[in-house]
């Protein structure tokens, strides 16, 4: 991890302080609305407050136009929560990214997650031109240099108040080529990433193998790794994620557990089945967190329950992660 500022922190964000103090960190995720209603963010913020150390705010997730991450993040700051701004390389070139980040920092944002971004062909503007001026690793390097070297990507000095972000990146332990994934993570660490949030993990065994390689490379000592987890709502959703979503590894066992959850509940009892599935989805997530916690090098979890923020409380509570620490 790169050079620290005078107070010893890079950004001083709550997330950074929780991790530095050695607590097991918990981050959540919030998808901004496809509209300009501020109250949507405020309502969701209430569901997350006190349960997580920081909240990711997606950046036009799945290439669908939504309220900007920085805009929603500002509302979250007003609600007393700490945002992790997500920034993709799909929609902005290096000028736009740096300019937006100066604004984000001025508005009180302190955490940043650097992403490539889903391809626009998945979203609601498939005929759009994409940017990809820089990639996610170059983005990490750029914002780390803005902080530690007080310079823009071009090399020009940032004369007044360089933005000091706690810089994160993503890792997908289940993407291919599988053998290259730890090395790609190493490149992100080398670029200066402070923390890593992983793709959703359902196959703990395969994730453990990935982490073995990560430890072998010594990466776990250079970066905080938060494992991604998230509840499934139904066997159908589990099957869809298993069969249709690139970059996810959902073992049959998860699908079976979801299917068995409604054993003994009559087909006609729609609400009973729905509740049983949801309870099982939450329980699976708790079980996953407990298994993942045992893996050396994992220092926190990132809980993705987009459009199901109500699930966060039972998960965090069930996993014994409450109350959240108040670091100095």
């Amino acid at each position: 991890m790169s050079e620290a500022s005078s107070n010893g922190y890079k950004s001083g964000s709550r997330l950074e302080r929780v991790l530095r103090a050695g607590h097991f960190a918990v981050t959540g995720e919030l998808g901004p609305p496809q509209g300009a209603e501020a109250n949507v963010i405020r309502e969701k913020a209430k569901l997350l407050k006190g349960l997580v150390d920081a909240v990711n705010i997606t950046d036009n997730q799945t290439a669908i136009v939504r309220m900007s991450s920085i805009g929603a993040g500002t509302l979250l700051v007003q609600e007393g929560l700490e945002p992790i701004i997500q920034m993709t390389c799909r929609d902005r070139n290096r000028l736009a990214i740096q300019s937006d980040l100066l604004g984000a920092y001025a508005l009180g944002m302190r955490n940043l997650l650097c992403l490539t971004g889903d391809h626009q062909s998945f979203g609601n503007h498939p005929t759009a031109k994409n940017v990809h001026d820089i990639d996610s690793i170059q983005l990490v390097k750029m914002v780390v240099d803005m902080r530690d070297k007080a310079c823009f990507q071009c090399g020009d000095e940032i004369k007044e108040t360089p933005p000091r972000f706690f810089v994160g990146a993503a890792a997908n332990p289940f993407g291919d080529p599988f053998e290259f994934r730890p090395y790609r993570l190493a490149k992100k660490v080398k670029a200066g990433a402070d923390f890593i949030q992983t793709q959703l993990i359902y196959n703990v065994e395969r994730f453990a193998k990935f982490m073995e390689k990560v430890r072998e490379l010594g990466l776990h000592q250079q970066v905080y790794i938060l494992a991604g987890v998230g509840p499934v709502k139904s066997p159908g959703m589990a099957r869809y994620m298993r069969d249709q979503v690139a970059g996810l590894d959902v073992p049959d066992e998860i699908v079976d557990r979801m299917t068995r959850a409604t054993d003994g509940i009559d087909e006609s009892d729609k609400k009973g089945r729905r509740d049983a599935w949801r309870n099982e989805g939450i329980q699976i997530t708790i079980d996953l967190i407990q298994q993942i916690r045992e893996i050396e090098g994992v220092v926190g979890v990132h809980i993705m329950a987009i459009e199901w923020e109500e699930a966060i409380r039972p998960i965090v509570e069930g996993a014994g992660l409450l109350p959240r620490p108040e670091p100095a």
């Binding site: 390389c89 799909r90 490539t116 971004g117 889903d118 391809h119 062909s121 998945f122 994409n130 990809h132 990639d135 996610s136 690793i137 170059q138 993503a170 997908n172 993407g175 291919d176 080529p177 290259f180 090395y183 790609r184 490149k187 793709q199 690139a246 970059g247």
Partner: peptide
């Protein structure tokens, strides 16, 4: 590469094919 990446594959690479 659909995203013109210079530092390795994005998370959407699976079984040798592109997510798009």
């Amino acid at each position: 590469c659909a995203k013109q990446l210079l530092n390795g594959p994005c998370g959407g690479s699976q079984n040798g094919v592109c997510e798009i």
